[in-house]
């Protein structure tokens, strides 16, 4: 669980996006992975091997545990993509699906 330092709320702009269709709010400059954690979503996918839940681990693009579906495209690295207004972020089950 993560919280925003109080000063940040006034220092940055709010960004509205959705997580699995639910409205959510982040701050400009957040990566998708940071935005998920800021919204209390610590698990963002399940693994293709055992179905275990996973969440962001390295935040620098090396572990590939924060894979999510962004605007319909699966297997995006959440920590390497900035959250944008209106973005549709979906948690991901198992492996990437055809057409996504």
């Amino acid at each position: 669980m993560f919280r925003r330092l109080p000063e940040i709320e006034t220092a940055t702009q709010a960004v509205s996006f959705t997580i699995d269709g639910r409205p959510a709010s982040a701050r400009a400059g957040d990566s998708v992975a940071a935005a998920l954690l800021a919204n209390g979503v610590t698990a963002c996918r399940t693994t293709p091997v055992s179905g275990a839940a996973r969440g962001p681990y390295c935040m620098m693009g090396v572990c590939f545990d924060c894979l999510v579906t962004i605007d319909g495209t699966g297997n995006r690295q959440g920590c390497q993509v900035r959250v944008a207004p209106g973005m549709a972020v979906e948690t991901q089950n198992g492996k990437r699906e055809v057409e996504r």
């Binding site: 940040i8 701050r27 962001p56 681990y57 935040m59």
Partner: peptide, 25 residues
Amino acid sequence: WTLPGVLGAGAAQVLLKTSGLVPSG
């Protein structure tokens, strides 16, 4: 170490630098 909620300290530092996020709980 694969459980959600377990992160690298470096990852947590990235969250602080980029987003001003700190652990709660």
